[in-house]
């Protein structure tokens, strides 16, 4: 979302507070929830969280037997269930009457949270290992690989572009696509209730921060370019001296040695 007029200001969990039920709000909810699933699953793997997994099978009662009998559940599964409880609870604790905007917003958020979770777990990369007789494939074990979060982020960005506008159904209890010409809403899609406001000008009511002062790219013609980003108001250019690490020697984890170089750059910001 870097190259968009919309600025994701404090898109972190629990502070997701974008006033308008726009597609940006949908994205913010989705990525925050996906982040929770990712972080929890990751922590599970490292063994830092004590409550992970191990309850896939209902068979034996005691944990120890469960572990010997059926192994432990998948970490993503735990992350998914955790995020369901942790993120969705905020939406579920409110009670809204039918047809109320509050209910619409709640339903929208719940849907987008689910879409965020699904972006992570319904596209796992499956890896398999053959380990049968003499290493043949008579026995094959597969598992879920968690892709890097960057991949999930890119997928969510695509979902943002293809999100679907929704409205209440006739009974006022569910959200359906606003226009029957749109495609049907899938669980993995982002949904929104209202079109995005003009993010060019700041407006506390809509949650828009405006693009004044945003950095832009002088040579680009797309959303990150100065023309579109600054909404034709023009841009300021300032000269800055940048000190950075350079001529570095880097090994797989760490810098070995670097020089500090100073270089002059031009920074363009919107008026």
């Amino acid at each position: 979302m870097v190259e968009s007029r919309f600025e994701c200001f404090l898109c972190s969990l629990r502070t997701v507070n974008i006033l308008l039920p726009s597609r940006e709000a949908a994205y913010a909810h989705g990525i925050a929830t996906a982040g929770v699933v990712f972080a929890v699953s990751q922590a599970c793997r490292e063994g830092y969280l004590t409550n992970c997994g191990c309850s896939r099978k209902k068979r034996p009662n005691s944990l120890h037997r469960d572990w010997i009998w059926g192994g432990c559940g998948d970490n993503i599964e735990y992350g998914y269930r955790f995020a369901q409880g942790f993120v969705d609870i905020r939406e579920r604790e409110k009670n809204h009457p039918r047809r109320s905007p509050g209910l619409a917003r709640t339903l929208m958020n719940l849907h987008n949270n689910e879409a965020g979770r699904r972006a992570l777990y319904s596209h796992p990369e499956i890896a398999c290992k053959c380990h049968g007789v003499s290493g043949s494939c008579s026995l094959k074990t597969c598992w879920n690989q968690l892709a890097s979060f960057r991949v999930t982020g890119e997928r969510l960005r695509q979902r943002y572009d293809s999100s679907v506008r929704v409205r209440f159904n006739r009974r006022g209890t569910k959200l359906i696509r606003a226009n029957s010409r749109f495609r049907k809403v899938h669980k993995e899609d982002f949904v929104y209730l209202e079109e995005s406001p003009d993010y060019c000008v700041p407006n506390p009511e809509t949650g828009s921060l405006g693009t004044v002062g945003r950095r832009c790219d002088k040579n680009s013609d797309d959303m990150g370019g100065c023309r579109l980003m600054c909404c034709d108001r023009g841009y300021k250019t300032r000269k800055a001296k940048l000190s950075e690490r350079c001529h570095c020697k880097f090994h797989w984890c760490c810098f070995v040695k670097c020089k500090v170089c100073e270089r002059i750059i031009y920074i363009h910001t919107c008026k």
Binding site: G47, K57, G70, G71, H131, W143
Partner: peptide, 9 residues
């Protein structure tokens, strides 16, 4: 149960 179990660490 499933023949093998996977621990992803």
């Amino acid at each position: 149960p499933a023949p093998t179990n996977v621990q992803n660490i």
